[in-house]
């Protein structure tokens, strides 16, 4: 059934009249145009076929080898500056604003990541960055999710799909229910923990908690590993979206809010974040409080 457009009160419309066919010459022109198009298409095909035949007569048979493909080198545009590999380890701190969210990026240089459980020694001068890693269970004080500390499993189970491993100095951030890196970490005296996934292959991962808080995360961007902290309380979604917009490939959460940590910049200045409750005695931290710790190589 022919569809009619809506009509207004100040309009009229003749029903059954084919408005498009008002001109008696319209059909003639349509037919003429169609013939022209057909001729043009036919001519083009004929021209192409004849040219191909000519080319095949003059050109030698193609070789039976796959054409050699040269791969383009991937240009890494890292956020951190280039640092002499012999220089003393430090954390480069860069502030940026994405989607109106102030972000502080901590990029460790000449440092290696490990995990630590218990009370951190803030006088440890080898540490260039420390932040709380895995969550601690409120009921029994145990570590949430699988956790390997220098090859020793301290906790098992999947509660969060994000994981971070540091094995033989190589840090891997990813999202998976099962990761062979857990076993590998136990075999090679490595480190492994789980947290909320934020970004997986450049795609935002939604999480259940909806509140707003200071957010922290560890990220992998084109192979560059760094930590990010928001300057304002943000939702998981907005934080993850900011990381996606930063170009992060993989990211998982680190304990946010007032969780204590610090970074040592190139000048040796300590930049603390969160509340150092553990040390002031105001509140006893769970004994299984864990940290990611970047130490100078």
């Amino acid at each position: 059934m022919k569809e009619f457009k809506d009509i207004k009160d100040d309009q009229i419309r003749i029903i059954g009249e084919d408005n498009s066919g008002k001109s008696p010459f319209r059909r003639f022109w349509i037919i003429l145009l169609s013939v022209c198009v057909l001729l043009l298409v036919g001519g083009s095909i004929l021209f192409a076929v004849l040219n191909r035949e000519k080319a095949s007569e003059t050109e030698p048979e193609p070789a039976y080898f796959e054409p050699e493909t040269t791969s383009e080198p991937i240009v890494c545009e890292w956020l951190g500056s280039r640092v002499d590999s012999l220089a003393k380890g430090f954390t480069e701190i860069r502030d940026t604003l994405i989607n109106d969210i102030p972000l502080r990026i901590y990029i460790p240089h000449n440092a290696e990541m490990s995990l630590y459980v218990g009370r951190m020694d803030i006088r440890d001068t080898s540490v260039v960055y420390a932040a709380q890693a895995a969550d601690v269970r409120a009921d029994n004080g145990g570590i949430v999710g699988a956790f390997v500390l220098k090859g020793t499993p301290r906790s098992w189970g999947l509660s969060k799909k994000g994981f971070c491993a540091s094995i033989d100095g190589v840090v891997t951030v990813g999202v998976a229910e099962n990761s062979p890196l857990f076993e590998e970490a136990t075999e090679k005296e490595g480190y492994f923990f789980r947290q909320y996934p934020l970004v997986d292959n450049g795609q935002l991962v939604e999480n259940a908690p909806k509140g707003k808080s200071i957010r922290r995360g560890i990220c992998d961007r084109q192979g560059e590993i760094f930590m990010v902290e928001t300057g304002t309380p943000e939702s998981f979604h907005d934080f993850a979206q900011a990381l996606v917009d930063l170009g992060v490939d993989q990211a998982i959460y680190l304990v946010g809010s007032s969780a204590y940590g610090w970074a040592i910049d190139q000048a040796g200045t300590r930049h603390e974040f969160g509340d150092n409750n553990y040390y002031t005695g105001r509140r006893r931290m769970p004994k299984n409080t864990s940290y990611i710790v970047w130490r100078r190589k």
Partner: peptide, 15 residues
């Protein structure tokens, strides 16, 4: 429109 085709042109829709 569908039943009368061009013969339907004796009808005019007004508003």
């Amino acid at each position: 429109g569908s039943q009368l085709g061009s013969e339907g042109a004796i009808f005019i829709r007004i508003g």
